[in-house]
Design a binder for these strands. Structure first.
Length: 685
DNA sequence: TGGCTAAAG
DNA sequence: GGTTCTTTAGCCA
């Protein structure tokens, strides 16, 4: 298969790109002089160039005027893109293997979030209405996927596995079911290891230290599919004469191995794309789904472009609905009002058509897509993407999410009463605290360094979120009053409004139960925010409530997370300062006569367990400072309870004066919250 | 900080 | 009859 005349791979693998410089004159591109190229700052001595052939002087003038720059492909990286096959469905199938043989759909409220391939074979599609799906496939087995916990857990496990095979920690998760890996280093290392005389019996070393750790593979062929399909007789590029070829080939085997392990060890089949940047890897992967992989052989200038040509621009990651439609409207010379704007109108146009459009250039794209409020440099970015050039790096793995949020929608039955609100707020707050403890707390390995915790299972926070945010969305009521044609504003994502405040530090106490912390969070922080959003005491018509913690301050530790936050006592001091602001703010509107204290937790907060231990695990070990600070906060919180909360539903109070003692916990509960409170007891955890 | 938009799965 | 639940990122004032 390999001509004997080819040079040894080891030498070839070290060949620089200079030796690969080539001109592609046989495509209908423009000629641009290299001088022009240099003037434009696009010079590249390392890479070959695509020369665009100009056929007419007119075109030449046009080209020189608009100077479309053909982006320089940077193909010195190797990127893998993993996509777990119908992930949500697979999670349920792994829990209950009998489901594998049945058509399975995962629902979220009234829509089908996803379904397995058995269901797809019967015509069921993702994002269908449940009612439609059941019509098409009455035997469809449905599972509820509104609670994402199980998916998050599995996603994290699979991600950790992939991460454990990375040398550079560049392992980026996209959603729950996709992962990018930059494997340039590990692949390059293994290319050097290839023995040209024994390709069939190659060994892939997964560890630089331990040469035994790895797997055998056959380097005489690609693993999985390739684009273009590899002809058995070869097509010129070989392991010996093309470095990118060797890297992609070796990478295809790594991808195959990782996919195999994901399936064997975890039970998840996946699809993988192998290429030199994120966009290409992701697109390549979609060519053979499910349970397969595809390596894009973009070995020569123009290969990436040829690959991109066929794609509808809407399918290119990063090209969303809005931008695709703007481009299509321009190409088809269609006024933007001409297309139905309400529903997602399919954008059909392909990369080829866009690039063939007269005068197309980064500048023109900037004109089409740019403007106030839009991303700067969008023209260049899209232009590059259409050429298969994507310089975005794979982000380094971080254990710390930038934000944790939890929300629920109330589409059929909006929230209107305080009881309903309290019930939902408590439920959301409990989920949030649970999530914070799962995602932000880790076991502390070194137990003697924290004698002050006095706890058996030493745990600590990876990061402390500083900010709490509450967002709501109200469902617009059809206006009965005016018969005008004015359509009511659409109830969409963007009709949210939000308020934020510092996150009280008691949420970091791991000693207290979730319910207790959640209850306090609702009463002491979320309700005040709610009142800043809604003056009315009821009839808000809430269609959505979201609570979110963000603004993470890493505690700074061994795990490679970005530094800062070393000194925890300092961190709590800042929080203290913030909390003072908070207190002031809460009192800012002249506090009304506090006749009653709705939601007061005084009964509970007097109990001795309540004192503290917030951050007793702080790495500084400065217990005194921390504890003092915390006491401060407690005091402030008491203040807020006494005044802030009472202020909250201020003015004309007719019913909030009455509080009753809960027979179960003895807490004083305002009348309106009593039913919610009882349910709270009934639910247990 | 908060509003708003866009995109992703 | 019905569009879920998030996360990230960017611009603007």
């Amino acid at each position: 298969m390999w001509p004997g005349s080819m040079s040894p791979y080891c030498a070839a693998a070290r060949t620089t790109y200079n030796s690969e410089a080539r001109a592609l004159v046989d495509q209908d591109y423009y000629w641009v002089t290299s001088v022009l190229w240099l003037i434009e700052g696009q010079s590249s001595l390392r890479y070959g160039r695509a020369w665009r052939k100009m056929t007419t002087p007119l075109l030449m003038r046009q080209t020189l005027r608009t100077t479309p720059k053909i982006p320089t492909p940077k193909d010195d990286r190797i990127i893998l893109h993993f996509d777990y096959d119908c992930f949500y469905a697979s999670v349920f199938e792994n829990e209950t293997p009998a489901l594998k043989a049945l058509p399975l759909g995962i629902k979220q409220k009234s829509i089908l979030a996803t379904c397995n391939y058995v269901a797809r074979a019967r015509g069921v599609k993702k994002l269908m209405l449940i009612s439609d799906a059941e019509k098409i496939c009455p035997e469809l087995v449905l599972r509820n996927g509104e609670d994402l916990t199980r998916f998050r857990d599995v996603s994290k496990r699979l991600w950790s596995f992939l991460r454990s095979h990375s040398w550079n920690r560049k392992v980026e998760r996209l959603g729950l079911d996709e992962v990018f890996l930059d494997v340039t280093d590990i692949v390059e290392y293994n290319v050097q290891l290839l023995n040209p005389n024994a390709l069939v019996h190659s060994f892939f070393q997964l560890s630089e230290q331990d040469p035994e750790k790895g797997f055998s593979f056959d380097a005489s062929a690609f693993f999985g599919c390739t684009i273009p399909p590899k002809r058995p007789d070869g097509d010129g590029a070989t392991l010996g004469n093309h470095p990118a070829y060797a890297r992609l080939l070796v990478a295809s085997h790594l991808a195959g191995y990782l996919r195999h392990k994901l399936e064997e060890d975890f039970g998840y089949t996946s699809t993988c794309g192998v290429s030199t940047n994120k966009v290409l890897a992701k697109l390549a992967g979609t060519k053979n789904k499910p349970k397969n992989q595809t390596t894009l052989l973009n070995l020569h200038e123009g290969d990436a472009l040829a690959f991109m040509d066929e794609w509808q621009i809407r399918k290119i990651p990063g090209m969303g609905f809005k931008n695709s439609q703007l481009v299509e409207n321009h190409i088809l010379q269609r006024p933007s009002e001409a297309v139905p704007h309400d529903h997602e109108h399919a954008v059909k146009i392909t990369t080829r058509e866009v690039l063939a459009h007269p005068g197309m250039s980064p500048g023109l794209l900037e004109k089409i897509l740019g403007g106030p409020g839009t991303e700067r440099g969008i023209g260049d970015k899209v232009w590059n993407m259409l050429h298969g050039v994507d310089n975005a790096g794979v982000k380094e793995a971080s254990d710390i999410p930038t934000q944790i949020s939890i929300e629920d929608t109330y589409v059929t039955k909006t929230l209107n009463t305080q009881a309903e609100l309290m019930r939902e707020l408590h439920a959301l707050a409990r989920s949030l605290i649970r999530r914070m403890r799962v995602d932000l707390v880790v076991a502390e390995e070194d137990d003697n360094s924290y004698p002050l915790t006095g706890e058996t299972a030493a745990q600590k926070w990876l990061a402390y979120p500083k900010t709490l945010r509450l967002s709501t969305r109200v469902k617009s009521r059809p206006s009965v009053m005016d018969g005008s044609q004015q359509a009511p504003p659409r109830d969409n994502y963007y009709n949210r409004s939000s308020r934020s405040s510092p996150l009280p530090t008691f949420v970091f106490s791991l000693k207290d139960g979730i319910d207790y912390v959640a209850e306090r969070l609702v009463n002491e922080a979320i309700l005040p925010l709610f009142r800043r959003l809604h003056n009315e005491r009821h009839n808000w018509n809430l269609a959505l409530v979201n609570i979110c913690v963000t603004n993470m301050v890493p505690t700074g530790n061994e795990d490679g997370s970005v530094g800062g936050g070393r000194d925890i006592s300092k961190m709590f001091k800042t929080q203290g300062a913030k909390l003072k602001e908070f207190t002031v703010y809460s009192n800012d509107p002249p506090a009304p006569v506090a006749t009653a204290k709705p939601n007061s937790l005084r009964g509970l907060s007097n109990s001795s367990e309540n004192s503290a231990a917030v951050a007793s695990q702080g790495p500084t070990g400065d217990a005194r400072v921390v504890a003092n600070d915390h006491d401060d906060h407690d005091q402030q919180m008491e203040d807020i309870e006494a005044e802030g909360t009472a202020m909250a539903w201020d003015d004309d109070d007719d019913d909030d004066g009455e509080c009753r003692r809960c027979p179960e916990c003895g807490q004083r509960i305002p009348e309106f919250a009593m039913s919610a409170h009882r349910r709270f007891h009934a639910l247990g955890d």
